[in-house]
Design a protein around this nucleic acid. Structure first.
Lengths: 122, 122
DNA sequence: CACTATTGACTACATCTGTAGTTTCATCGA
DNA sequence: TCGATGAAACTACAGATGTAGTCAATAGTG
């Protein structure tokens, strides 16, 4: 459980989270724009994801339709948690502090986040 | 440039960021508590880090002293950026939104972050 | 019906990672 | 001086990852 998804595999997942089900060729077409991988590479990645039961397959004649079995939010939650645990001792505040200090936050970002937090409380 | 640091290597870096320079044995002692790696494993990791020029070595008689060549903040900045780029389209707000929705943020966290943002503006 | 294009299955292979074992060389104590 | 010790260097090796190639079956097309 909580199978690891590699960077390349993640790229495939993003496509499937956006639209599913898709055939291997369709997935390949969509990632080709950004990554330029061959169809074979995409098929390998789909196989590996299916082997990990992160995506499901459904026969459609002689080909397969692939769909995510894991929701994007669930995945993000796990990855974010691991990230924050590993680099910021599990605390989110230091992460935000770090991003802020590293000038990764524009004034607009700050306003947006403040707005968001206000909603959370209200 | 911007050499990749693996999870295990990162563990070593944390030790060196806390105290440096240290000998291989000293590093091994400190990670042993948490990770239980053998001295050889630690030495391998130190070699790999040195090969990547992420840490520097200084001869001290028959042994070496190791020190970070990259600052923790610099490293965190790079890794955080990559993380946010890859998973949240480079925007920090969706990350915070996600953490908030995933209940990763306690009320205290929220207060802390608000405080932090206020300081940033002020 | 024969041929070609498509598709999944299987195979490949270099590199990176985690986790050491083995060898060699220098040094310190008896 | 000589052997035990400790440190670095070199070697190992399985599993994950990135990136395909090849093969075999099948489904349309002329």
């Amino acid at each position: 459980m909580a199978e690891r998804i590699s960077d390349a595999e993640h790229e495939i997942m993003e496509v499937l989270w956006q639209t599913a089900p898709l055939t291997a060729t369709e997935v390949a077409d969509r990632v080709a724009e950004a990554k330029g991988w061959s169809l074979q590479t995409v098929k390998t990645l789909l196989s590996r994801l299916a082997a990990k039961a992160v995506i499901g397959t459904e026969r459609d004649g002689r080909r397969f339709l692939y769909s995510p079995l894991v929701e994007r939010d669930t995945y993000l939650a796990g990855v974010s948690r691991k990230f924050v645990d590993r680099l910021f001792g599990g605390k989110v505040t230091p992460l935000v502090a770090h991003l802020a200090e590293a000038d990764e936050l524009s004034d607009d970002d700050i306003r947006e986040i403040e707005e968001l937090l206000r909603e959370l409380k209200g």
